[in-house]
Design a protein around this nucleic acid. Structure first.
Length: 883
DNA sequence: CGCTCCCGCCATGCC
DNA sequence: GGCATGGCGGGAGCG
C-alpha cells in the first residue's frame, strides 16, 4: 500500500497511509513534510528501509493474487529494498509487479478493502475449513501479517475471535494452530449451553419486555455476573495446548466473541442488535455503563462481527424498531447441534450452517415420507411471543388474556418442540430423550416458521402487524391439510431419527403426524409465529409451509425438499436471502404473510428452493387444502413452481410485496378448504401410549373465532399429550378442525382458525403449539402423572371451547403411538438453509430488539415449569377467562 | 450525519 | 528493557 501510494498514490490522493508513513518515516526522514499528502512525491519516505515496509510492499503487491508473487517478491525483496530505499522511484516497484502495481495503485485501497472482514476472509482462505486431522497447520502471525500485508495487530483481532470458536488455538508465541471447523459445532453447542445458563434468564426476563433493548439494565441484572470474565469455554485443546499461555487476562476480545456468539445461540430470533449485545456484555463486565464504554464495546463488537461474518456465521441485518433502524446481526450458522456432535459426522460439510440444515432436512425428509405439513402459520399462532410484543406495542390489547396466552404460547413453542420430541420418543421409545428433549427445547425453537430465517428482512416489530399478521398468516398457512392423511405412516421413525431423536427434528419439524388418525401435530412454530408475523414469515413460513405441504405428499415432498436442501444448502449460501427480506417491513400489513422476498427471487438461494419455498409456502398454504387433494402440490411445491407456484405466486408474489392481497387469497383458500370437524381427543390417562389427550377443536370459526384479536394463536384445537410427557406438553392437536371459517372471517378470524382449518383440512391434525411440552417429560409416560392431564385440558381456552364445541368426534389419536412425522418442513424448508435454521430456532419475533429476548424466554421457560405454567395459564385462562 | 471500524498508541505481562 | 499481546478510543471513510 505504501508503495502504491508513493508511487502513484501520491499524486492522486494523499492517502492516509501516506501520512502515516510519513510520520513513521519521518523519523527517518524528517524532512518530508509531515503530513502533507503530497509527499507522495517520490521521495517517498525513503524510509522504506524498514523491513516491514518492504514486506508490506511486497505483500501489498502480492496480496491480490499473490501468493506466488510473494515468493517472487521475496526474492526481489532485497533488491527492492535496496532499490526502493535507494531509488525513490517506484519504478522498481513497478518492475517488481508491474501490472499489479498499477492496478493497485489505481485501486487504491479503499477503506473497505482494508476491512477486517475482508482481511479475515483472506486469512481464512489460506486454510482449509476441514483440514485433515493429520495435518496440523501452524500459523505464524508474522508470516500471515506480512502476507496479508497488515499489521500484526489486525491479525490478533482475527485470531482472537477464531480462537474463541476454537478454529485456531495458540500454540506458542506467534504461533497458532489451525483446527478448522471440525470442532465448530461442538464449540457452538458448548457456547449455546453456556449461553443458556448465562443468558437464559436474561432472555427470559428480557422477553418480558419486548424490547429488550430498552431495558438492558434489567436484563443485565439478570445476567449472571460471575463467570463472565473467565473464558466461557476454555478450550484448551489437547492438540495445541499451549495452555499456559492463556494466563493473560481474559482477553476480552476472545471472551466477548464467545459471549456474542452465545447471545445468538440463545436468541430465539437469532438476531442480535449491537447495542443490546454491547449492553449485555458491558453489564456483565462492568457496572458502569458510561457511554464511552458503550461505544468502545460496540467497536469491538464490530470487529468481532466482521470476523464472524467472514466465517459465515452471522450476517448483518437491520432491525427496525419503533425507534428506527438498528444495526443487528443475524445468526446464519448452524443452529442445532446434535448433541452427539456433529463432529462425529464430521465431515459434514464445511459450511456449518449448511450442514445443519442439511442434516435436519435430510432427517426430516426421511421422516417426511409420511408427509407432513407444516403450517407455518401455526407458528404465528404460537408465536405468541411475537404477538405479544406486537400486541403490546400495538396495544391491542384489550385482551389481556392474550398476552398471557401468548406467553404461554411461547412456551408452547418450546413445548411443541418438546412434544415433538416426546412423540418421537414415544414412538421410538426414546425415553432418554427427556434430557435431550430439554436440550432440544432449547433449540427448539420451534418456530415453525421459516420466516425468521431470512436474515435480511428487517424485522419489524410491528406490533400491530402482529396480530393481523397472524391472522393473515394463518390463512395463508393453512394448509396442513394434506398432511393428515398421509401422516400416519409409521415409517416415521426416520423422523424420530432425526438424530438422536431429538430435537433436531423437532426444531425443524413442526408437525407430527399420527398415523392412526392421520392426525398431525404441529409443533412449535410458536416462535415462528412471531416471525411469521409479518415479516419473517414470509420467508420462513413459506418455506415451512411449503415443506409441510411437501411433506404431505411424502415422496414428492421429500424429494423436493431434499433437492432443495441439497441444492441450497450445498451451495452453502446461506445468505442469499437476506437481500430480499427487506420487504418484510411491509409486514406491517396485516398480512403477515408477506413473504418477502424472495420467493422467487432467483437469487436467493437457489431459487428453487428458496424462492420456491417462500412461494411455495404461500401456495402450500393456500393450496394446502388443495394440495391435500392433489399431491401435485407436493411436486410443485418448492421445486416446481408450476402449480403451486402459480397459485403461490399469485399469493406469493403479492405477499412479498403486498401482503394483504396475498393474505386475502390465502384466506380464501382456506375458506375453500373444507373444514372438517376438529377433534379433541382425550384419552384416559393411560390411553394412548403416547398421548393422553387430543382435542379436536373444531374450530369453528365461530368457536374459535378468536377474535382476530384474541390470540388466535392459541387457538390450537387440540392437544395431545403423551401419557407421561403429556403433562409437560401442551400440545395441541388439531384435527381437522377447521371450522368453517368464513372467508370473510378470515381476516379477522383468528389466525387460529386458519391454522386449524388449514391443518384440518381433512384430516385431523394436531398441532402442538408449543408450549407445552416439556421436554423433560420423563420418557416414560407414566412419569408425570400429574402434569399430563392438565395440559391437555388446559389448552387454550379456545381450544377448550373448540373442543367442547367440536367434540371429539373422532377419537383420533387414540392409541396410536404417535408416529411422529416430522414435517420436514423445516427440513424442507431447508431449501434455504437459512430459512430452515431460522425456523427452527428462530422463533423469532421479529422484533429487532427482541433478539435475545425471545430466546431467553423460551429457554428460561424452557424448563418445564414454564411450560407447565403456560399450560396452566391456558387452562386458567380458559377456565378463568371465559374465553 | 451517523454508522462503521481502521489504525495505532500504549498498557500489561512475560522473559 | 524488549517483545508479545491486546485494550482502547480517536477520528476518518462511507453511505
Amino acid at each position: 500500500e505504501n508503495i502504491f501510494d508513493r508511487s502513484r498514490m501520491a499524486p492522486k490522493t494523499p492517502i492516509k497511509n501516506e501520512p502515516i508513513d510519513l510520520s513513521k518515516q519521518k523519523g527517518c526522514t524528517p524532512e518530508r513534510n509531515p503530513i502533507t499528502p503530497v509527499k507522495i512525491i517520490d521521495r517517498p519516505q525513503s524510509d522504506p528501509w524498514t523491513p516491514t515496509a518492504n514486506l508490506k510492499i511486497l505483500v501489498s503487491a502480492a496480496s491480490p493474487d499473490m501468493r506466488d508473487r510473494e515468493k517472487k517478491k521475496e526474492l526481489f525483496r532485497p533488491i527492492e529494498n535496496s532499490e526502493q530505499s535507494d531509488t525513490p522511484d517506484s519504478l522498481q516497484y513497478d518492475i517488481v509487479d508491474d501490472s499489479t502495481v498499477d492496478e493497485f495503485e489505481k485501486q487504491r485501497p479503499s477503506r473497505k478493502q482494508k476491512s477486517l472482514g475482508l482481511l479475515c476472509q483472506k486469512f481464512l482462505a489460506r486454510y482449509p475449513n476441514y483440514p485433515l486431522s493429520t495435518e496440523k497447520t501452524t500459523i505464524s502471525l508474522d508470516e500471515v501479517a506480512s502476507i496479508l500485508g497488515v499489521e500484526r495487530r489486525r491479525i490478533y483481532d482475527i485470531v482472537n475471535v477464531l480462537e474463541s470458536l476454537q478454529l485456531v488455538s495458540r500454540v506458542a508465541k506467534n504461533q497458532y494452530c489451525w483446527h478448522g471447523r471440525h470442532n465448530l459445532s461442538q464449540t457452538l453447542k458448548m457456547l449455546q449451553d453456556a449461553g443458556e445458563l448465562q443468558y437464559g434468564e436474561l432472555m427470559t426476563s428480557q422477553h418480558k419486555e419486548q424490547d429488550l433493548e430498552y431495558k438492558f439494565g434489567e436484563r443485565k441484572k439478570a445476567i449472571i455476573p460471575d463467570s463472565q470474565d473467565r473464558p466461557l469455554l476454555d478450550f484448551s485443546e489437547p492438540d495445541c495446548i499451549s495452555a499456559s499461555a492463556n494466563s493473560r487476562k481474559d482477553k476480552s476480545l476472545r471472551i466477548m466473541s464467545q459471549k456474542f456468539v452465545m447471545l445468538f445461540l440463545v436468541s430465539k430470533t437469532k438476531i442480535v442488535t449491537l447495542d443490546i449485545a454491547a449492553k449485555i456484555l458491558i453489564e456483565e463486565t462492568q457496572d458502569t455503563v458510561d457511554h464511552s464504554k458503550f461505544k468502545t464495546k460496540v467497536r469491538r463488537l464490530y470487529d468481532i462481527a466482521n470476523v464472524l461474518t467472514s466465517l459465515g456465521l452471522i450476517k448483518k441485518v437491520h432491525v427496525t424498531e419503533e425507534r428506527g433502524r438498528k444495526p443487528a446481526f443475524k445468526w446464519i450458522g448452524p443452529v442445532e447441534f446434535p448433541e452427539n456432535t456433529d463432529d462425529l459426522r464430521g465431515d459434514s460439510p464445511a459450511s456449518n450452517p449448511l450442514p445443519e440444515t442439511q442434516r435436519g432436512a435430510s432427517a426430516q425428509y426421511q421422516t417426511s415420507t409420511t408427509g407432513k405439513q407444516r403450517f407455518t402459520r401455526h407458528a404465528s399462532f404460537n408465536s405468541a411471543q411475537p404477538c405479544e410484543a406486537a400486541r403490546r406495542k400495538v396495544s391491542s390489547e384489550p385482551n389481556s388474556p392474550r398476552q398471557e396466552r401468548q406467553a404461554c404460547i411461547v412456551n408452547s413453542d418450546e413445548n411443541c418442540s418438546k412434544m415433538i420430541n416426546l412423540a418421537a420418543v414415544c414412538r421410538q421409545k426414546i425415553e432418554e430423550d427427556t434430557g435431550s428433549a430439554k436440550k432440544s427445547n432449547m433449540t427448539l425453537p420451534v418456530s415453525l416458521l421459516p420466516v425468521p430465517g431470512d436474515s435480511d428482512f428487517c424485522v419489524n416489530p410491528l406490533p400491530q402487524a402482529v396480530f393481523p399478521v397472524v391472522q393473515a398468516d394463518v390463512p395463508s398457512f393453512s394448509l396442513p391439510i394434506g398432511m393428515s392423511s398421509q401422516a400416519s405412516h409409521p415409517s416415521i421413525p426416520a423422523a424420530s431419527k432425526t438424530e438422536n431423536g431429538k430435537p433436531t427434528l423437532v426444531p425443524n419439524q413442526p408437525f407430527l403426524c399420527f398415523p392412526s388418525s392421520s392426525l398431525f401435530m404441529l409443533c412449535g412454530g410458536l416462535q415462528e409465529s412471531n416471525m411469521s408475523e409479518p415479516l419473517p414469515t414470509a420467508g420462513d413460513p413459506g418455506s415451512r409451509s411449503a415443506e409441510a405441504q411437501a411433506a404431505i405428499p411424502p415422496p414428492v415432498c421429500q424429494k423436493r425438499s431434499s433437492q432443495k436442501c441439497s441444492s441450497p444448502s450445498a451451495p452453502g449460501d446461506d445468505e442469499e436471502p437476506a437481500a430480499k427480506k427487506q420487504t418484510l417491513k411491509h409486514s406491517d400489513l396485516p398480512l403477515s404473510l408477506v413473504v418477502p422476498k424472495k420467493p422467487e427471487s432467483p437469487k436467493a438461494e437457489s431459487s428453487p428452493g428458496g424462492g420456491c419455498s417462500a412461494a411455495v409456502h404461500l401456495e402450500t398454504n393456500h393450496l394446502g387444502l388443495a394440495s391435500l387433494a392433489a399431491p401435485e402440490m407436493a411436486n410443485k411445491e418448492s421445486t416446481k413452481p408450476l402449480d403451486c407456484q402459480e397459485q403461490g405466486k399469485q399469493s406469493q408474489k403479492k405477499d412479498p410485496d403486498d401482503p394483504p392481497p396475498g393474505n386475502e387469497y390465502i384466506s380464501k383458500e382456506n375458506a375453500n378448504q373444507p373444514f372438517q370437524p376438529q377433534y379433541l381427543y382425550v384419552q384416559p390417562t393411560a390411553g394412548l401410549s403416547s398421548f393422553n389427550f387430543l382435542f379436536s377443536a373444531n374450530q369453528a370459526p365461530g368457536a374459535i373465532s378468536l377474535a382476530a384479536n384474541q390470540m388466535p394463536s392459541l387457538s390450537l384445537p387440540c392437544v395431545m399429550v403423551p401419557s407421561a410427557a403429556l403433562a409437560s406438553f401442551p400440545l395441541i392437536p388439531f384435527t381437522s378442525a377447521l371450522s368453517p371459517v368464513p372467508d370473510s372471517s378470515f381476516s379477522a378470524a383468528a389466525s387460529t382458525n386458519f391454522s386449524v382449518s388449514s391443518l384440518a383440512s381433512t384430516t385431523p391434525v394436531f398441532i402442538s403449539t408449543t408450549a407445552v411440552v416439556t421436554p423433560k417429560v420423563s420418557p416414560a409416560p407414566s412419569a408425570d402423572p400429574q402434569q399430563p392431564a392438565h395440559p391437555a385440558l388446559h389448552l387454550s381456552p379456545v381450544l377448550t371451547r373448540s373442543c367442547s364445541a367440536v367434540k371429539l368426534d373422532s377419537p383420533v389419536c387414540m392409541g396410536h403411538p404417535v408416529t411422529l412425522l416430522k414435517l420436514q418442513q423445516p427440513s424442507s424448508a431447508p431449501l434455504t438453509p437459512k430459512s430452515i435454521r431460522p425456523a427452527h430456532h428462530e422463533a423469532f419475533f421479529k422484533t429487532p430488539g427482541s433478539l435475545g429476548d425471545p430466546v431467553a424466554w423460551k429457554k428460561n421457560e424452557g424448563t418445564q415449569t414454564r411450560n407447565a405454567s403456560s399450560v396452566q395459564r391456558r387452562l386458567e385462562i380458559s377456565s378463568t377467562s371465559p374465553d
